[in-house]
């Protein structure tokens, strides 16, 4: 087991080096001089220019620059945002909890709806409900979420007036950040003592539409995945045995079939982190959600390259690591693969 784990870890190294090279050359591929970009239009004074070039290490040979870049990354230094003049790493971690909170609720929505839909469709295989639900999930899978978010706003905010249009919480409340998750922070005693449960409800209401928009594609994937996984398990001998023992259908499905069907489903779930980020970029732009997705889009429009570089490095590394962990857990959960 340890050997497998170490092997996986060793395998990661070239990929991580590749990612670091990619984000390193990114800023150098951009047309134009990075020094001028950082100094702005008026940075033409040769003395200032040379000083800036030196302070950025851009006068060194390229491989030296790369090693400096990697050294800095390992010391938590990802450079400075051109716009805010704050360290990229700080900016990133300021916004990351907002994206995580939205991601968690979106996945929660996807699981709690997707898995039952998939089970139901598998049990009622080839019935009207099967076709209806699977047609629906194909529709969800094809959904342009930047449009879906707007349609949700149109129905629930504009027409029905049920949910807020943008942001994480009503501006009436101020909640001190502690965990960064507003659903948790707003339940702290000081907050409840001052405003009661209003801030919590406000945060919850703000989460509903973005979570649905972001969770729709994962929901569709989960439903399709659960259905095919369940169908495979339902054809196994031990299911027939369980039925022959006279167990109720409910018992057979929940205790015998679902447990085994869940293994591939959980793997897929672990690999959904990437689609969360994709979803975050679009969903956060629509709902003005102050997370990393909106931040990255704004940085691109403002040509804030250190931010893009840092964001790409962070996100790609995180995805590679999460995928590796899911891989190892999968092997751990499935003894057949432990060779």
């Amino acid at each position: 087991m340890l050997k497998i784990f170490l092997g996986k870890l060793l395998n990661l190294i070239p990929t991580l080096i590749g990612i670091s090279i990619l984000s390193f050359i990114l800023i150098r591929l951009v047309p134009g001089d990075p020094v001028l970009l950082l100094l702005g239009e008026r940075g033409a004074d040769p003395a200032v220019y040379a000083e800036m070039q030196k302070s950025l290490g851009l006068d060194l040979p390229i491989h030296q620059q790369y090693f400096n870049f990697v050294y800095n990354v390992f010391h938590g230094d990802l450079g400075q945002s051109i716009i805010s003049k704050r360290p990229v790493a700080t900016e990133f971690f300021d916004r990351f909890p907002a994206t995580l909170e939205l991601g968690f609720t979106a996945l929660l929505f996807a699981f709690t709806c997707g898995i039952p839909i998939g089970i139901f469709a598998a049990v009622k295989r080839n019935s009207f409900w099967d076709y209806f639900l699977m047609g629906g999930s194909l529709l969800g899978y094809s959904m342009p979420i930047f449009w879906w978010g707007l349609v949700l706003i149109l129905i629930f905010s504009v027409q029905l007036g049920l949910t807020p249009v943008a942001g994480r919480m009503s501006v009436l409340f101020e909640v001190e950040t502690w965990s960064g998750f507003l659903l948790i922070d707003s339940l702290k005693q000081e907050v409840i003592a001052e405003d009661g449960f209003e801030p919590f409800l406000s945060a919850l209401k703000h989460l509903i539409l973005p979570s649905i928009a972001m969770g729709t594609i994962p929901l569709a994937v989960m439903a399709r995945m659960t259905r095919s996984s369940m169908l495979e398990v339902l054809g196994e001998d031990y299911i027939r045995t369980a039925k022959a023992k006279g167990l109720s259908e409910y018992h057979v499905i929940t205790r015998h079939a679902l447990r085994n069907a869940l293994i591939p489903i959980i793997t897929v779930a672990g690999l959904m982190f990437g689609s969360i980020i994709t979803g975050a970029i679009l969903t956060e732009t629509i709902f003005s959600w102050p997370g990393i997705g909106k931040w990255l889009v704004a940085s691109i429009n403002a040509r804030d390259y250190p931010v893009i570089q840092g964001g790409v490095l962070f996100i790609a590394t995180m995805i590679v690591l999460i995928n590796a962990i899911v891989d190892v857990l999968y092997i751990y959960a499935n003894p057949k693969l432990r060779t």
């Binding site: 070239p14 990929t15 590749g18 990612i19 951009v30 689609s275 994709t278 390259y305 790409v312 790609a316």
Partner: peptide, 24 residues
Amino acid sequence: MRVIDIIMALPSILLAIVVVSVLG
């Protein structure tokens, strides 16, 4: 396959955004 792995490590929209930010 290593290069493919790296491309796949980036979420599709983010990768597209990165490419567009370089190319314009």
